[in-house]
Amino acid sequence: MKLTLKIWREGGMYASGKLETYKVEADEHMSFLEMLDVLNQQLIEEKKDPVAFDHDCREGICGSCSMVINGQPHGPQKGTTACQLHMRSYKNGDTITIEPFRAKSFPVIKDLVVDRSAFDRIIQAGGYVSVNTGQAPDGNAIPIEGDTAGKAFDAATCIGCGACVAACPNGSAMLFTSAKVAHLGLLPQGKVEHEARSQKMVAQMDKEGFGMCSNVGACEAECPKEISLENIARLNRSYIASVFSSE
């Protein structure tokens, strides 16, 4: 199939950033990123600068890929990362616009590559259980009720890609932050620090300059792991409670 691509170029010779138009020939069995590989091979053969994009596992789990395809983070397929999107979702003659994740807290590094280190700093603020190696009791010492374990797991499937922030009209990181708070807070092992964790992580999130959640729900709709808005409510709850109960 013949495609027209409009790709955001920024950095290098494109100082201020602009959409460039390219033509590429793709096969329906290709993944979206393999289609970009074909374009880059073409550009290199023409001795031009290839399009930079983050990618690594190409199995939809590392969370590296971060591009907005026709206005949607990771493209049109529900619950699917850009690397798992295949060209059979497109047809001959289509025009596809590809842009980087946009948010003030995710500055563009080059082309489609953005800096998501703000997420690391949110985790560093409290997204862990404070246990040193060697301190743990037996793994089966505390049974965990199936439903709770399932909910914690659902939250833990977050791959930290940042699509939630990219999709949110407010550039809010609430879905990401709340998924971690919910994952750890629902488990008995993480409950001890739950309220303090909520406060520390929200404070860091605010400091990073992410916007405020206004419950639009775009994050949930675009999340490749389909993480639920329920987690945001959970974080609101624990944060408000923690403010009033802590000393």
Binding site: V129, V131, A136, D138, N140, P143, A152, H183, L184
Partner: peptide
């Protein structure tokens, strides 16, 4: 065996049986 204990303590959500055990 220590790995499993440590990972559970870190909050790794391993699969569990109905009774809540690993």
């Amino acid at each position: 065996t220590e790995i499993i204990d440590h990972c559970v303590a870190q909050g790794v959500p391993f699969a569990r049986e109905y009774g809540g055990l690993l």
